[in-house]
Protein backbone atom coordinates (compact mmCIF):
# COMPACT_ATOMS: atom_id res chain seq x y z
CA UNK A 1 0.00 0.00 0.00
CA UNK A 2 2.90 2.33 0.76
CA UNK A 3 3.85 2.53 -2.89
CA UNK A 4 0.31 3.55 -3.79
CA UNK A 5 0.23 6.34 -1.21
CA UNK A 6 3.71 7.53 -2.14
CA UNK A 7 2.88 7.61 -5.83
CA UNK A 8 -0.38 9.44 -5.13
CA UNK A 9 1.51 12.06 -3.11
CA UNK A 10 4.04 12.47 -5.90
CA UNK A 11 1.43 12.75 -8.63
CA UNK A 12 -0.67 15.24 -6.67
CA UNK A 13 2.42 17.34 -6.00
CA UNK A 14 3.50 17.20 -9.65
CA UNK A 15 0.07 18.17 -10.92
CA UNK A 16 -0.19 20.89 -8.28
CA UNK A 17 3.19 22.42 -9.14
CA UNK A 18 2.52 22.19 -12.86
CA UNK A 19 -0.76 24.07 -12.44
CA UNK A 20 0.90 26.63 -10.16
CA UNK A 21 3.34 27.34 -12.97
CA UNK A 22 0.45 28.30 -15.30
CA UNK A 23 -0.09 31.93 -16.04
CA UNK A 24 -3.67 32.43 -14.96
CA UNK A 25 -4.97 32.70 -11.41
CA UNK A 26 -7.54 29.94 -11.49
CA UNK A 27 -5.16 27.08 -12.34
CA UNK A 28 -2.81 28.43 -9.68
CA UNK A 29 -5.57 28.17 -7.07
CA UNK A 30 -6.43 24.63 -8.15
CA UNK A 31 -2.72 23.80 -8.18
CA UNK A 32 -2.34 25.06 -4.64
CA UNK A 33 -5.30 22.92 -3.59
CA UNK A 34 -3.67 19.83 -5.11
CA UNK A 35 -0.33 20.66 -3.47
CA UNK A 36 -2.13 21.07 -0.12
CA UNK A 37 -3.60 17.58 -0.55
CA UNK A 38 -0.14 16.20 -1.27
CA UNK A 39 1.45 17.90 1.72
CA UNK A 40 -1.36 16.97 4.10
CA UNK A 41 -1.20 13.31 3.05
CA UNK A 42 2.59 13.43 3.34
CA UNK A 43 2.45 14.76 6.91
CA UNK A 44 -0.17 12.15 7.70
CA UNK A 45 2.02 9.41 6.21
CA UNK A 46 4.90 10.47 8.46
CA UNK A 47 2.91 8.69 11.19
CA UNK A 48 3.24 5.53 8.98
CA UNK A 49 0.29 3.72 7.44
CA UNK A 50 -1.80 1.64 9.78
CA UNK A 51 -5.11 -0.07 9.00
CA UNK A 52 -7.88 -0.66 11.54
CA UNK A 53 -6.25 0.93 14.60
CA UNK A 54 -7.93 4.34 14.94
CA UNK A 55 -6.64 6.52 17.78
CA UNK A 56 -9.81 6.08 19.82
CA UNK A 57 -9.16 4.55 23.22
CA UNK A 58 -10.93 1.22 23.53
CA UNK A 59 -10.31 -1.73 25.81
CA UNK A 60 -10.71 -4.11 22.88
CA UNK A 61 -8.26 -2.29 20.63
CA UNK A 62 -5.08 -4.12 19.67
CA UNK A 63 -3.15 -0.89 19.41
CA UNK A 64 -3.34 2.62 18.09
CA UNK A 65 -1.94 4.50 15.17
CA UNK A 66 0.12 7.64 15.79
CA UNK A 67 -2.44 10.33 16.69
CA UNK A 68 -0.06 13.30 16.50
CA UNK A 69 0.25 13.69 12.70
CA UNK A 70 -3.52 13.37 12.52
CA UNK A 71 -4.00 16.28 14.89
CA UNK A 72 -1.53 18.33 12.86
CA UNK A 73 -3.20 17.49 9.57
CA UNK A 74 -6.70 18.14 10.91
CA UNK A 75 -5.91 21.76 11.63
CA UNK A 76 -3.85 21.98 8.43
CA UNK A 77 -6.90 20.99 6.38
CA UNK A 78 -9.01 23.70 7.96
CA UNK A 79 -6.26 26.31 7.64
CA UNK A 80 -5.78 25.30 3.98
CA UNK A 81 -9.41 26.16 3.46
CA UNK A 82 -8.85 29.58 5.00
CA UNK A 83 -5.80 30.13 2.84
CA UNK A 84 -7.61 29.02 -0.32
CA UNK A 85 -10.48 31.35 0.50
CA UNK A 86 -8.07 34.27 0.88
CA UNK A 87 -6.29 33.65 -2.41
CA UNK A 88 -9.61 33.10 -4.17
CA UNK A 89 -10.79 36.54 -3.09
CA UNK A 90 -7.42 38.05 -3.97
CA UNK A 91 -7.57 36.47 -7.42
CA UNK A 92 -11.13 37.64 -7.89
CA UNK A 93 -10.24 41.14 -6.71
CA UNK A 94 -7.21 41.30 -8.99
CA UNK A 95 -9.31 40.23 -11.94
CA UNK A 96 -12.04 42.75 -11.23
CA UNK A 97 -9.58 45.56 -10.60
CA UNK A 98 -7.23 44.99 -13.50
CA UNK A 99 -9.44 43.31 -16.02
CA UNK A 100 -7.22 40.31 -16.58
CA UNK A 101 -6.31 37.24 -14.56
CA UNK A 102 -2.65 36.85 -15.41
CA UNK A 103 -0.33 35.88 -12.60
CA UNK A 104 2.93 37.37 -13.87
CA UNK A 105 3.29 41.10 -13.65
CA UNK A 106 5.79 41.32 -16.50
CA UNK A 107 3.38 41.25 -19.42
CA UNK A 108 3.05 44.54 -21.19
CA UNK A 109 -0.18 43.43 -22.79
CA UNK A 110 -2.25 44.82 -19.97
CA UNK A 111 -5.47 45.34 -21.85
CA UNK A 112 -8.56 44.29 -19.90
CA UNK A 113 -10.42 41.22 -21.05
CA UNK A 114 -13.53 41.77 -18.95
CA UNK A 115 -16.46 43.04 -20.89
CA UNK A 116 -17.51 46.35 -19.49
Amino acid sequence: MEILVASAIGLLASAGIYLMLRQRTFPVIVGLTLLSYAVNVFIFAVGRLVVGLPPILDKAAAGYTDPLPQALVLTAIVISFGMTAVIVIIALGAYLESGHDRVDMTDDTDEPEVRK
Partner: peptide, 28 residues
Protein backbone atom coordinates in the same frame (compact mmCIF):
# COMPACT_ATOMS: atom_id res chain seq x y z
CA UNK B 1 10.04 18.83 -15.97
CA UNK B 2 10.11 20.99 -12.83
CA UNK B 3 6.80 19.56 -11.63
CA UNK B 4 7.76 15.95 -12.29
CA UNK B 5 11.16 16.39 -10.62
CA UNK B 6 9.51 17.74 -7.49
CA UNK B 7 6.78 15.12 -7.55
CA UNK B 8 9.20 12.21 -7.97
CA UNK B 9 11.39 13.59 -5.20
CA UNK B 10 8.42 13.93 -2.84
CA UNK B 11 7.13 10.46 -3.73
CA UNK B 12 10.57 8.97 -3.13
CA UNK B 13 10.88 10.77 0.17
CA UNK B 14 7.42 9.58 1.30
CA UNK B 15 8.20 6.06 0.27
CA UNK B 16 11.55 6.12 2.03
CA UNK B 17 9.88 7.40 5.17
CA UNK B 18 7.02 4.92 5.15
CA UNK B 19 9.27 1.92 4.60
CA UNK B 20 11.40 2.74 7.63
CA UNK B 21 10.57 2.59 11.30
CA UNK B 22 10.72 5.65 13.50
CA UNK B 23 14.30 6.76 14.06
CA UNK B 24 13.45 7.95 17.56
CA UNK B 25 10.74 6.76 19.93
CA UNK B 26 7.65 8.80 19.14
CA UNK B 27 5.91 10.99 21.65
CA UNK B 28 2.65 9.39 20.54
Amino acid sequence: AVAVTAGVALAALSYALMTRDFAFPTIA
